[in-house]
Write a protein that binds this DNA or RNA. Structure first.
Lengths: 109, 109
DNA sequence: AATATATACCTTGCAATGCAATATAGCAAA
DNA sequence: TTTGCTATATTGCATTGCAAGGTATATATT
């Protein structure tokens, strides 16, 4: 079992939360996630995910010029994206509760 | 994003924790997981997972007779399985911390 | 005996998604 | 020009959750 498997589906919610706070572009997002302690984040994860979210209308995107390199694609949350985020938060709370309950009796030994 | 995607890789650790507490058979495991609040658990998930764990030598299995149906395949944790469980717990704690930080919960657990 | 019900394990085929590797390109400084 | 950082995108693969379907055992009911 790799660490990456644990992330499946969970990153999505975290990305939505970050975007809600402030519009971001992909490259920036990868750096933020790493700062939050999510290890080993590659562009092969970030960009397909953002494009999928755009396709699902959870986010919108606009290109803006950069003074330090090629243009950046900034993502913002849609109403649908906000709703998805709320649902994620609910599910995350439930998951935490269930997992911690299972692990609790294990640590009682 | 479905609820099932969030489970990827996380169920494994929970199953190891349950098995460590007491040897279980697949059918029983499914019921326990449901009791812990993990919804929608099918045998199409449980059995392939247990067989994979056996292949990876995280668990051992022995058949025992049942008085209420066909024989049961009981699973126990190996040393390797215990080590895997400890690693899962560590990763789970880290994941919780990262996600909760992103979501701006204050995690005291 | 035949049928129904609950228990119990397994397989097939599919869908979702994280990610390494790779490609392309803008911009600035040496 | 070359180097290096910035920035987006694509391809192909591996993993794994799960619905659907199959097989088999034991007990109770008809």
């Amino acid at each position: 079992m790799s660490s990456t498997q644990m992330l499946k589906g969970i990153i999505d919610g975290c990305v939505l939360a970050i975007i809600k706070d402030k519009e971001v572009y992909g490259y920036e997002l990868a750096e933020k996630l790493e700062a939050y302690g999510f290890e080993s984040f590659s562009e092969g994860t970030i960009y397909p995910m953002l494009m999928r979210m755009q396709r699902e209308e959870l986010v919108t995107a606009t290109f803006k010029k950069s003074t330090a390199g090629p243009r950046r694609k900034y993502y913002s949350l849609t109403q649908k994206g906000e709703e998805e985020l709320q649902q994620f938060i609910y599910r995350w709370k439930q998951l935490q509760q269930s997992v911690n309950q299972v692990l609790r009796f294990e640590s009682d030994d």
